[in-house]
Design a binder for these strands. Structure first.
Lengths: 190, 190
DNA sequence: GTTAGCATGTAAGGAGTTACATGATTTT
DNA sequence: AAAATCATGTAACTCCTTACATGCTAAC
């Protein structure tokens, strides 16, 4: 019966785990963190915060540097922090190495919090994404081989560029997977 | 008062302009055409076809090779073709060089139909996308310079990879723009 | 003292997905 | 004759956006 299982939830919990923050700041950090991959608007962030608050995963952080404030005055900043439940939920989200973590929508966000993710989960996510991309490559290459001649130059150019982009990401993943494996081997020996 | 102004409308009209087709085939062609960029499900395609039919932009193509069919039997394939209004609408969509044509969601689809697009519109779309990406590069580079030290390796790796991907697309656009310009110059001379 | 940016929020809606439901046709 | 895949469609829902509404605070 849990709602809002989207990327935003993870992103917000992950960022608040690093440091308490208010909504406006959160959104900016979010959009620089995810830079090229995603951008969120206030219209989705604030409802999400409201929801997380109701679920008890985050709470208002009242440790303000200037506590003396006329009663009844609405403070203009609302700083949020993770609750114990929120930390637990974050760990749960960071532990799942399933489609949600390697499909296009989720991969960037999951990767962004790899520093807080267990090594074995990291590896499975990277491998999951790689095989997802390889599936895609194969199906597009097959389609290209089938329709080779009967397609205009722009369409071809687009497919070629798409293909190369994905091939590039696969090479990147290969390197990361290699590093992760080496690191795991180091830890076993050490 | 026009609805469904999404990418699907353009994609469907564009594909039907090349040849009449039924929904199932349309979806497959769509997903190989856009390959790496997008994928649509039947749940969005069929409602879209219904909508286009109601708007009179497409019509059922009854020129079947086997016209003799027991009356009352629902034929299992429904082949659609563009109407005159549909062709007009397609031209309208292909002529607009605005944000819809160079933002992430729309660019791939617009590019895919460049063969049917006027040369000046093509150029403006390519330039629009390039400056959009350059804006993004600048803001991410600025963010990177600001937060350089206080960020973990994975986050850095992600941002770096994102940056390089976009830089690569910019180079690709540069090449395409160069080609378009050369082609236009050729046409002026002859 | 007014513009620009900080800060929070809501209502309406867009564009798509998933899951379901059904039946025809082809392949094994 | 069973299984796969072709083919069409709907209902409920998700996640997010846009546009709006409001007020505070810093800089020029």
């Amino acid at each position: 019966m849990r709602s809002k299982a989207g990327v935003l939830e993870l992103a917000v919990l992950g960022l608040l785990h690093e440091a308490p923050m208010h909504g406006y700041e959160l959104r900016k950090r979010l959009n620089t963190l995810l830079g090229m991959f995603r951008a969120f608007s206030y219209g989705s962030l604030y409802p999400c915060l409201k929801d997380l608050l109701e679920q008890g995963l985050i709470a208002e952080d009242d440790q303000e540097p200037v506590p003396a404030r006329p009663a009844g005055t609405r403070r203009s900043k609302i700083v949020y922090k993770l609750t114990a439940d929120g930390k637990e939920r974050l760990q749960e989200l960071l532990s799942e190495a399933g489609p949600a973590s390697w499909e296009d929508e989720g991969f960037g966000v999951h990767f962004a919090f790899f520093a807080q993710t267990r090594a074995d989960v990291r590896l499975r996510i990277l491998e999951g994404r790689r095989s997802r991309l390889e599936e895609r490559l194969e199906s597009v290459r097959a389609a290209l081989a089938r329709t080779r001649e009967r397609v205009d130059n722009y369409t071809l150019e687009l497919q070629q560029h798409g293909l190369e982009s994905v091939e590039r990401e696969v090479r990147w993943l290969n390197e990361l997977i290699g590093r992760e494996r080496a690191q795991q081997a180091d830890e076993k020996n050490g």
